[in-house]
Design a protein around this nucleic acid. Structure first.
Lengths: 200, 200, 200, 200
DNA sequence: GATGAATGAGTATTCATTCAT
DNA sequence: AATGAATGAATACTCATTCAT
């Protein structure tokens, strides 16, 4: 059997997703994880810490991926494409984490919230900077509002947690491609040559 | 002073937004509303009913607006533009309702959930149908996946509740225009004549 | 039936005395008081507050009595006699309060502790000042250490909570007289005329 | 490093004194003692046994001293003087033991309590018997109540644990002398020749 | 209509103790 | 002898709801 700490996280993920952070009790979690109250509190100082761990696991993964994409590519179009594809993939890998992340942040204790917010802001800045670069080098439309466009893109992708199902008609990869296509149609200058990414 | 029922709704809206449905107690609500436990339970059978009322108020408003826009316009482009503009406006009018709607639905009791889901689905279908019509009459790209595109659009707009602030740099109207612009760039056929909406 | 708040105090007094503050549970208290958890927490914000109320009731009573005795009499001998007699009487009236006061103070939350300590110090100062006055006006031995003598007296009396029983051989009044007698023998100048308190 | 068993006792003594028996956890104790749960339970069958050991160490010491003093001296005055001086000295040697002894006895398990009570009573009887002897041989006042006087003396001395500080103005030896002086003034017949203890 | 004292099932958390290693 | 992960019974406390007034 997997180690206890992980079993607790998996159990809580499933329960938080289904019942909400407050709807899922420590009792349910330990039962689902096949352990005891003591087992739980041996590995986590509180239910709040568990909530933080879930938040942190996801945002750390996503931020790292975005940083890597940002460094690995030159053109804003290529960067944005990879960042979005990676991000969308996370919605399959971290489905439950993400649901918790976007729904239960409000219950994060102040100290934990600060840690999460820091990474969350870094991620957002990578998106914003990429859009700005795209405008500067004339790959993207010059009339774009960086912030609103950035939040529009983030919204489009983030919302996926509300409806994506692994058993749905499209794979996560196809969804990612569609999002990229829509976004690039929405923000790229139309007169441009086709976007062929020689970097990949 | 406004009638008690409304004062309770306003108080709970503010508290649910800030503290979450479970984070806000009936005691806090009645204190904020300037009434008592008795006053609360005279107007609502339970805290759960109050949650439903908030859900229903918002989704009813939004669905009605979408129905009206759907009937008032002919071209899919025009329909979509108006639906989206109206919807975005709701994020200013119903900011707190929306936050509760998208974050606390999970705590809706089954019977209430069914009622809300029905209207929510109707709203979604109006969007989907409009996209389909746009494809059919060749205003929108023929390669669009109706569902994914629809959810992408909904995501872009819905996400607004996460970041919109009345005191921000852009008015809700400007944000609506930007969203419309991005969406139409993303989904309209490029060879088309400019979209001039004679209907308005 | 007496009001609930008082029934809770009485029940807790008895239970704290017998089982200790930690040994007595809120469950036991509410059962003994004939109420419920909710009833308890309606009247007290916490078990800690209840502990404070017990402390405060006793020390307030005792301090007030000492202040009155201090003002009502002139000679240090008379003052001390009355202060001690009153104080000893408190061991009958507030037997359980006192046991809690001297045994469980350590569990008082810091804010409460400060409040209690203030009154406790005032009481001690009244004793010290009286001894000092007795030395100054040559009723008491000039070689007395005010502090040690004061603490010796307080110790003698305070210890009573460890052994006094209402059903014992001596009444509380007799015990008080014996203490006064021992104390005055211990601290009064031997050559003095008999202590006749004309003030009473 | 001292042997583990002793390190545990020292650690618990300090922690019980500061936080109370219930306020100090086995975890804190083993951390402070530099060992582990296993180390603790290898040396003590339970936290309760540890509490007993602390009680027993102190009362055994004190009782032995009193027995010795009782045997070593003839006159009640001399006996009492030495018993009290020795006892007061214990308040410096066993400060933490004594605090625990007088504050946490209530948490002693019944079997342990019986053992401790037996020795405690023996000690008390030595005091009482000495007072009685003093009355009989007319060193002490004939009107003294043996029990009340005995408890008054014990109270005066015992209370020391509440205020004595090694860093205070008086040494433990000076405090002992003051107590002896006060007590003898309180109980000795006034017409007597000066109490010169030829036995020492 | 309105009050607020009282309820009690339910919650997160603690901690002395055990036991396989 | 010593470890520390795991236990689970017990604890203080919360809060939506009721109901006599």
């Amino acid at each position: 059997m997997a180690d206890l700490r992980n079993r607790i996280i998996q159990a809580s993920l499933q329960l938080f997703e289904q019942e909400g952070f407050h709807g899922a009790t420590v009792n349910q979690i330990v039962e689902e994880a096949g352990t005891s109250k003591g087992g739980f509190y041996h590995h986590f100082t509180s239910k709040d810490e568990l909530l933080f761990v879930i938040h942190d696991t996801f945002i750390t993964y996503v931020l790292d991926k975005a940083k890597m994409a940002n460094e690995a590519h030159q053109s804003p179009t290529a960067k944005l494409r990879v960042i979005i594809k990676d991000f969308v993939k996370a919605f399959d890998l971290y489905q439950a984490h993400i649901t918790v992340f976007y729904r239960e942040t409000i219950y994060l204790k102040p100290d934990y919230e600060i840690l999460v917010k820091k990474k969350r802001d870094q991620f957002k800045q990578i998106i914003f900077k990429t859009i700005q670069e795209g405008k500067t080098c004339e790959e993207f439309r010059s009339d774009l509002s960086v912030e609103i466009t950035g939040m529009a893109i983030l919204g489009m992708v983030n919302w996926t947690y509300m409806w994506y199902q692994r058993s749905g008609a499209k794979t996560i990869d196809e969804i990612g491609d569609i999002f990229v296509d829509l976004i690039l149609h929405a923000i790229r200058l139309e007169e441009q040559p086709p976007d062929i990414d020689f970097e990949i």
